[in-house]
């Protein structure tokens, strides 16, 4: 094998042409004009407004406690961020949470010890994710349709399996993960922070993270560059299934019971978090940091409105508007950097 060192390319005489490439934008602009900055800004504004509304918000402990309702969705949203950066989408995680939690409950009722039942649940997450992955990567179907299909399928299976009744009666050590604290930080929040750091590093400094951005930027170019696109996407769908089943178990622990309608509508919350975090819906751009900030933005706005006694339908209106504003901001920023 010949290295290029052995067969040097003759350098042409240096020419003073810098104009062939447009000048790069100043570093401060590259750092400042990013969607994450918009998210951070919104977060600060929301925090200030919320503190005015209620003195509770000056209390970090209160915010952390009230976050536990959203934190499971936020954890799944971290993986969803990576899926969306790769150019796909997964709308089935909430249904996967329900089915895996119902499998856990059913296994427990059938007499399996809790660790075995948890194993069943995690395994089901892997299988459900792999099923999505096969449909998308092997049969080459569009993920948005596939996962709308499996969203309904998994939810339906959960109902067939568990019926309309709640399954409860789990041992007390399993129940109440949200009341376990490390200092003032509930365990689920700790899990979210740890997962954010790990996935942020995965996306930011590993070769897989790099390749995921490349796939999302141009899948065809990625294939031509020898990147194993299908394998990576398969892995992402499996990861999505696994994290959904973990989130399902966390809900089961928090509520002390499971039912087929657990986490209903959660997929929209997850997509909302990812979009608020400035991830580009068409793939190739986005970050874990953005999703992390967006999760706290959502927590503050949702609890803030609840504390301020704003009716639930008005809350939805605000969320919807927020989503649209964030998409406009994200698009404007990316259009700017496209030039």
């Amino acid at each position: 094998m010949n290295s290029i060192e052995k067969s040097p390319i003759p350098a042409t005489p240096p020419r003073v042409i810098v104009r062939e490439a447009a000048a790069p934008r100043p570093r401060w602009q590259v750092w400042l004009i990013r969607p994450e900055v918009v998210t951070l800004l919104l977060l600060v504004i929301a925090a200030i407004v919320a503190t005015r509304l209620s003195p509770f918000f000056a209390d970090l402990g209160f915010i952390l406690e009230s976050s536990t309702y959203y934190i499971e969705f936020a954890i799944v949203a971290l993986v969803l961020t990576i899926v969306i950066i790769s150019g796909e989408i997964d709308l089935s995680p909430a249904a996967q949470m329900a089915l895996s939690a119902c499998l856990f409950g059913t296994a427990f009722k059938a007499g399996a010890p809790i660790p075995v039942a948890m194993g069943v649940s995690l395994l089901s997450g892997l299988v459900m994710g792999a099923f999505n992955g096969v449909l998308v990567t092997v049969l080459r179907l569009p993920s948005i349709i596939v996962t709308i299909g499996t969203l309904i399928l998994y939810r339906g299976l959960a109902q067939v399996l568990a019926g309309d009744k709640s399954i409860s009666g789990f041992p007390s050590w399993f129940v109440g993960i949200d009341y376990r604290m490390v200092g003032i930080v509930p365990v689920p929040v700790l899990i979210f922070i740890a997962a954010s750091i790990l996935l942020g590093l995965f996306l930011g400094i590993t070769i897989y993270g790099r390749q995921i951005y490349q796939i999302g930027t141009s899948e065809i170019a990625a294939i031509h560059a020898g990147i194993r696109v299908r394998r990576i996407k398969m892995g992402l769908f499996i990861a999505s299934g696994l994290v959904s089943s973990i989130a399902g178990l966390m809900v089961a622990s928090r509520l002390g019971s499971v039912r087929y309608d657990l986490a209903t509508g959660g997929e929209l919350t997850m997509v909302l978090i990812v979009m608020l975090g400035g991830t580009y819906i068409f793939g190739g751009r986005g970050s874990i940091l953005g999703t992390f900030l967006a999760a706290w933005l959502l927590v503050i706005i949702a609890t803030g409105m609840t504390v301020a006694n704003i009716a639930i339908n008005a809350q939805l209106t605000v969320m919807g508007l927020l989503l649209i504003v964030s998409i406009i901001a994200t698009n404007a920023i990316y259009a700017r950097s496209q030039r």
């Binding site: 590993t206 897989y208 790099r210 490349q214 170019a221 294939i223 031509h224 190739g284």
Partner: peptide, 28 residues
């Protein structure tokens, strides 16, 4: 379409086919 990753940096584009050289242990 099949060559460049338009919005990514020149260096990312140049090293796209040699993951083992820029990340021997998986970390870039």
């Amino acid at each position: 379409i099949a060559g460049i990753f338009r919005s990514l940096s020149v260096e990312t584009n140049i090293t796209a086919a040699v993951p083992k050289r820029i990340a021997p242990k998986g970390i870039i």
